[in-house]
Computed example of a mutant assay.
Amino acid sequence: MKLSTNGLNLIKSFEGVRLTAYKAVPTEQYWTIGYGHYGADVRKEQTITQAQADAYLKADVERFEKAVNNNVKVALNQNQFDALVSFTYNCGEEALKRSTLLELLNQGKYEAAADQFELWNKSGGKVLNGLVKRRAKEKALFLIDLPQVKKEAQKSAVASAKTYKLTSGKNAYVSAADAKSQKNKKGAVKAGTYYVFNESQGMINLTSKKGVAGSWINPNEDIQEYYVIKSGDTLTKVAKKYKTTVASLKALNPSIKNINLIYPNQKIRVK
């Protein structure tokens, strides 16, 4: 995808153009010039022409378009792409790569990803009003036409998916990693249920009949499971039952201060 004119104007509106090198924040490592062009190639007191500023902008936009295209694995509409390029132009490719925003987006969690924009509002450890406004604009742009992109993403997922059927006689468990080999590990899927595993997105579609659409789940998400303590239970017995450790159970249940002090009907988390 390529940045639209609307996206380019958004970047220009926030960056502004300055033909003499400057530092927006004194603690920044490098100098900035033109439309926010930042890096080791910019020198103190350097001056450029408007044509050079335009050339820097064109090269930087192409670099950050590539960064978004290479790192985002889900469907985007033009507004979402523009918002992400603007974000990456300002924060950098490495920031995009390590961000929870990208992690959530690649899980198909568009709304949760959008909420991450406004967290990137600091420079030098301080909240800057300009960044607060920019993130708000990028978030708003990202959320335009969201229902349509989700619909297109689902169409794409179904088109590239493969269908499997569980064969176990008992309740089975499925994970994205085990879907191809049909091993039963995680996900609480009933035996005999058809499921569609999308290889590109790691999603599973549960349905009662082959070829009939069902509901999409992400098997890589943390699945919480609970157990109600019975008379005679100990934490060691519960740990053995769920093939885990007492230490893990304590970590999942901060309210358990003493492993010997559990009681009947107490509900504890085991996963």
Rank of each mutant, 00 (worst) to 15 (best):
Trp216Asp: 05
Ala188Cys: 02
Gly125Pro: 13
Gly192Glu: 02
Lys66Cys: 12
Phe14Leu: 04
Phe81Ile: 06
Ala177Pro: 03
Phe64Lys: 06
Gln50Arg: 10
Ser86Phe: 03
Ile48Cys: 03
Ala51Gln: 13
Val42Ser: 11
Asp60Cys: 03
Lys2Thr: 15
Glu103Phe: 08
Asn69Val: 14
Lys165Thr: 12
Ser248Phe: 07
Lys66Asn: 15
Asn220Pro: 07
Ser175Pro: 10
Gln46Leu: 05
Val238Tyr: 01
Glu138Leu: 08
Leu252Gln: 01
Asp115Val: 10
Lys183Trp: 03
Ala55Asn: 14
Lys126Gln: 12
Phe197Ser: 05
Lys150Gln: 14
Lys109Tyr: 07
Gln154Lys: 15
Gly108Ala: 05
Lys209Pro: 00
Tyr30Trp: 06
Arg98Gln: 15
Asn69Ser: 11
Lys210Ile: 07
Asn6Gly: 14
Glu62Asp: 09
Gln50His: 07
Ala191Thr: 13
Asn129Ile: 15
Val74Lys: 01
Lys185Leu: 13
Glu152Asn: 14
Tyr195Gly: 06
Thr236Asp: 13
Glu103His: 05
Ala140Met: 12
Glu15Arg: 02
Trp31Gly: 01
Tyr164Ala: 04
Trp31Arg: 02
Gln266Ser: 11
Lys97Gln: 14
Ser13Lys: 11
Arg134Thr: 13
Lys170Trp: 03
Lys186Asn: 15
Thr163Glu: 02
Tyr56Arg: 09
Thr32Asp: 08
Tyr110Asp: 04
Ala112Gly: 00
Ala191Lys: 11
Trp216Val: 10
Thr49Gln: 11
Leu84Thr: 03
Gly232Met: 11
Lys170Pro: 00
Val85Leu: 05
Ala176Val: 08
Lys186Glu: 14
Gln46Asn: 10
Tyr173Asp: 00
Ala113Trp: 01
Lys150Cys: 07
Lys139Pro: 09
Asn106Pro: 02
His37Val: 02
Phe197Thr: 03
Phe81Asn: 04
Asp145Ile: 04
Lys162Val: 13
Leu141Trp: 00
Thr100Glu: 05
Thr47Leu: 00
Leu143Trp: 01
Asn265Cys: 03
Trp216Leu: 08
Asn260Tyr: 04
Val72Ile: 14
Thr49Pro: 07
Leu235Cys: 04
Val74Leu: 02
Gln224Asn: 11
Asn253Pro: 06
Ala177Gln: 08
Leu249Val: 11
Thr244Asp: 06
Asn260Ser: 13
Ser200Asn: 14
Glu225His: 03
Tyr35Thr: 04
Asn265Pro: 00
Asp54His: 05
Pro26Glu: 06
Thr193Gln: 09
Tyr56Pro: 03
Ser160Pro: 00
Gly16Trp: 05
Asn198Ile: 05
Gly125Arg: 08
Val228Met: 08
Ile259Lys: 12
Lys237Trp: 00
Ala239Val: 14
Asp82Cys: 02
Gly124Thr: 06
Thr245Tyr: 06
Val17Cys: 10
Ile262Pro: 04
Val68Thr: 02
Thr88Val: 02
Leu119Cys: 04
Ser181Ala: 14
Glu45Asp: 15
Lys122Ala: 09
Ala239Tyr: 08
Leu249Trp: 04
Leu10Met: 14
Tyr89Glu: 01
Thr245Asp: 03
Ser4Asn: 10
